[in-house]
Design a protein around this nucleic acid. Structure first.
Length: 490
RNA sequence: GGUCCCAUCGACUAGGGGUUAGGUCGUCACUCUUUCACAGUGAAAACACGGGUUCGAAUCCCGUUGGGACCGCCA
């Protein structure tokens, strides 16, 4: 299809999208983007954003995962109109609480001849796959239980044999659908697996639960990761068998590692929590994620977008159809840009946890703010605060290397130091303004200027040749500390 | 291996028949700042390849190559 055909064909119905994670303990950065795109799409169209928990795999249950997920999402201002927390009239929003619903539709399917019982053991299936692999064929269910007679089925059930229910994929047909991002996708049904719909533990698989819920929850647009495209045909078959309309689909391209494989744990952090912990600001994270695979287009060169702007501008047809490498350098740059421009009071508030155990008394708000304003330009993320704090917290000035000592012990340095101590001592208190005054006076009186004037002072105060602006450091240190540190070298 | 998807600087991308192929990150240089950083200016840097279609193709079509996803009683 033409990729740009209208993303909302029927404006009379309310747009309803869902984010449907399985609660495995943490939110993957890729899921975050999917959640974001869903949210933006819903907001852009004045629709509803729904959270549904896909917890049909009992073996993967993780305690507290749902709470954690919701918490982290809301930390990033990704909120829902319906879901486990806020409820809604299409609930329950946990799939594990909807078992009887799936069972019912599954029975329907069997009755209609669109699904069938299968009694194969996992071992048998394993063997089948191994054989297929050996023969270089596609590994898929060989549909061996398709034609079991009613009698056989009844017998098997009676004798207590575990069973699953599989989708009876019609043969020799073609399934076609128009993806809002990828365009038309076609696949022959002969290549589609007779997917398991109901597991032997009575739980549905993703495919069944997903289709049933999306329909029952009136989902109009399915926006999810590209890893799902290959299962869409199965879903379409299900919709058809159930006599339901197929929602519009949009498959978002993957987020990639540097080597272009699907973003994975092995190659860096993938949990949203990790980024939050490291002190990436939510604004930066959202802004960056939005731009990974989406852009406003039309020659627009703006790169900084607030959530509000994103809501206004986001359209699904501007979503890229190819995968995007997750580039931490650019995230860092963007986060640094946000840090530099952030409201200082708010930034201080956010930074407080990172000052813990650094020896800075954060009860002194003014001082903390001053320190932060001096170092924020260096910060790619908030967890870099401690390493920037060394010059403010060290009791003894530790020289970075021995060459610095020579500079301190130079005759010109001593002259400068003597003059500085005298003048600083005479001040009531030190601030950037009178600091500058004193320095120009000293320059005049001693005739020492440039590097010879500033460098020894910086080294005496910080032990390093570079760092934040000296007037700021001097003010933060205060008169006492400054004169003490200088006096040592006279 | 099978099915499906994808292809513009190293990365994110704009552009979608006629452009000196634009921007951002990163890299490099210079300027500013008597430090580093910040900021500013500039530079290097791309249409995977081959065929069509067309007066004209990065743009449309086909093929090749390359990359990726999926192939579970996981989602």
């Amino acid at each position: 299809m033409e990729k740009n055909s209208k993303e909302v064909s029927d404006t009379s119905t309310e747009v309803r999208v869902r984010f449907a994670p399985s609660p495995t303990g943490f939110i993957h950065i890729g899921s975050l983007r999917t959640a974001l795109f869903n949210l933006l799409f819903a907001r852009h169209h004045g629709g509803k954003n729904i959270l549904r928990i896909e917890d049909t795999d009992q073996s993967r249950k993780v305690e507290g995962a749902v709470e954690n997920l919701i918490k982290n999402l809301s930390l990033l201002d990704i909120n829902f109109d319906e879901g486990p927390l806020q409820g809604g009239d299409k609930g329950p929003y946990y799939q594990s609480e909807r078992l009887d619903i799936y069972k019912k539709y599954c029975d329907d399917l069997v009755e209609k001849g669109a699904a069938y019982y299968a009694f194969d053991t996992p071992e048998e299936l394993d063997e089948m796959r191994k054989l297929q692999q050996l023969e270089g064929r596609q590994t898929m269910y060989d549909r061996r239980a398709r034609d079991l007679s009613e009698e056989e089925v009844r017998e098997n059930i009676k004798s207590g044999k575990p069973y699953v229910i599989r989708l009876k994929v019609p043969l020799n047909e073609e399934v076609k659908f128009d993806d809002l991002i990828k365009g038309t996708i076609k696949i022959e049904t002969n290549n589609i697996d007779d997917q398991i719909l109901l597991k032997s533990d009575g739980f549905p698989t993703y495919h069944l639960a997903n289709v049933v819920d999306d329909h029952l929850m009136n989902i109009t647009h399915i926006i999810r990761g590209e890893e799902w495209v290959t299962s869409v045909p199965k879903h379409i078959l299900l919709y058809k068998a159930l006599g339901w309309d197929v929602p519009k689909m949009a498959h978002v391209p993957l987020i990639l590692n540097k080597d272009k494989t699907k973003l994975s744990k092995r190659q860096g952090d993938v949990a949203v929590e990790d980024y939050l912990k490291k002190g990436y600001l939510k604004e930066a994270l959202i802004n960056f994620m939005a731009l990974l695979g989406w852009n406003p287009g039309e020659g627009e060169e703006q790169e900084f977008f607030s959530m509000d702007e994103l809501n206004k501008r986001f359209t699904i047809e501007k979503v890229q159809s190819s995968g995007a490498v997750f580039n931490i350098d650019k995230l860092n740059w963007m986060n640094n840009a946000y840090i530099k421009n952030f409201d200082l009071d708010k930034l201080t508030e956010l930074s407080l946890p990172y000052f813990e155990n650094t020896g800075i008394d954060t009860n002194d708000k003014e001082k903390t703010k001053k320190i932060l304003s001096a170092i924020r330009v260096y910060l790619n993320k908030l967890d870099e605060i401690p390493e920037q704090l060394k010059i403010f917290t060290q009791d003894e000035v530790e020289l970075e290397n021995n060459n610095l000592k020579e500079i301190l012990e130079a005759e010109t340095s001593k002259t400068v130091f003597r003059a500085l101590v005298e003048k600083f001592s005479a001040l009531e208190s030190l601030n950037p303004e009178n600091y500058k005054l004193v320095l120009s006076e000293v320059q005049k009186e001693t005739g020492i200027k440039g590097k010879q004037l500033f460098k020894p002072l910086r080294i005496a105060l910080t032990g390093s040749e570079n760092g934040p602006e000296l007037p700021l450091i001097a003010e933060i240190f205060g008169k006492e500390k400054v004169t003490d540190l200088i006096s040592k070298w006279i």
